[in-house]
Simulated scan of single mutants.
Amino acid sequence: MRVVIAEDNALLREGLVLLLTSVGHEVAAVAATGPEVLPALLEHRPDVAVLDVRMPPGFRDEGLRAALAARERLPELPVLVLSQYVEETYAAELLGAGASGVGYLLKDRVGRVDEFLDALERVAAGGTALDPEVVTELLTRRADPLDSLTPREREALHLMAEGRDNATIGALMSISDRAVSKHIGNVFLKLGLPPSDSGHRRVLAVLAYLNKG
């Protein structure tokens, strides 16, 4: 898998390079400032981009803006965004641009190597990977429409929003596949979202709901 990394922190940037190359991935390019990101993505067209939200020169949203611009030119480009904190506006903007092949992780998640690599591969394959803390923040900010869900249905929704498939949801909740399907069906009925047998479509529907202002 070919990866472009955009991260201004030299220690984290080099750590990502070493980690990815050690497991067999190719780092096609690295960028240390916002203006370097879009040209690198357009030139190398990686299998996935790993981007920091805030980068020089302004340390505002340069990485995110580059990601959005790249996805306008390369709609299928998978993007995994890293952030120091839960920044709801940035998460919603990225997801609102199209939820296929996107991820949003807090930077301390990178230290959990297996989780980070799993999220990277999921995003590269066209799926989604949201940090549990990001999902919690989004759900909390939009709690009122979710009041009709039972605790178990909320748990299923939370796991779906992270990008988990039915088997994983069942294992994490210690319930059968049939029970998972029932919870998922109830979630979509109560939220007015059409049920689907496709895990990817379910995640897109959940993210579309979370992005409603």
Rank of each mutant, 00 (worst) to 15 (best):
L207V: 12
V27Q: 04
S181W: 03
R142I: 02
L146V: 07
A167P: 02
A66M: 12
G199Y: 06
E121T: 03
Q84C: 04
N166S: 06
P132I: 08
T128V: 12
E153Q: 10
R154M: 01
L68M: 11
L68C: 10
G126L: 09
L19Q: 13
L105F: 13
R122C: 00
K190I: 00
A10L: 05
I169S: 11
V187T: 02
Y90F: 15
L41N: 04
T140F: 11
F116E: 08
L157F: 13
P56R: 12
R201K: 14
L16I: 13
D114C: 04
V203I: 14
L41Q: 04
L80Y: 10
M1V: 11
L172R: 15
E88P: 00
A129C: 06
E36Q: 14
S22G: 12
L51M: 09
Y209P: 00
E72A: 07
Y85I: 10
V79I: 14
L105D: 01
L149F: 05
P46Y: 08
R45T: 13
L105I: 09
L18R: 14
D118C: 02
K212H: 06
G192S: 10
L94K: 05
P57R: 14
G163W: 03
L130D: 00
N211T: 14
S198I: 12
E76M: 12
T89M: 15
P194V: 06
L94N: 03
K182R: 14
V17S: 12
G103I: 01
A161L: 12
V37T: 05
T136Y: 03
L159C: 07
P194M: 05
V3W: 03
A125Q: 13
I5N: 06
V53E: 07
D197V: 08
V53G: 06
A171M: 12
V134M: 03
I5L: 15
P39T: 14
V86H: 05
S198R: 13
E88F: 01
L77T: 07
V135A: 01
N9I: 01
R164V: 05
L138N: 00
K212I: 08
L18A: 15
A99Q: 05
V206L: 10
V135K: 00
A31G: 09
V30E: 15
D8P: 13
E153F: 09
A208V: 09
A91G: 09
V187Y: 00
R109V: 13
D131F: 02
L159W: 15
N211E: 11
A40L: 04
L38Y: 06
I184S: 00
A129I: 02
A99T: 09
E121P: 05
R142E: 03
G58D: 14
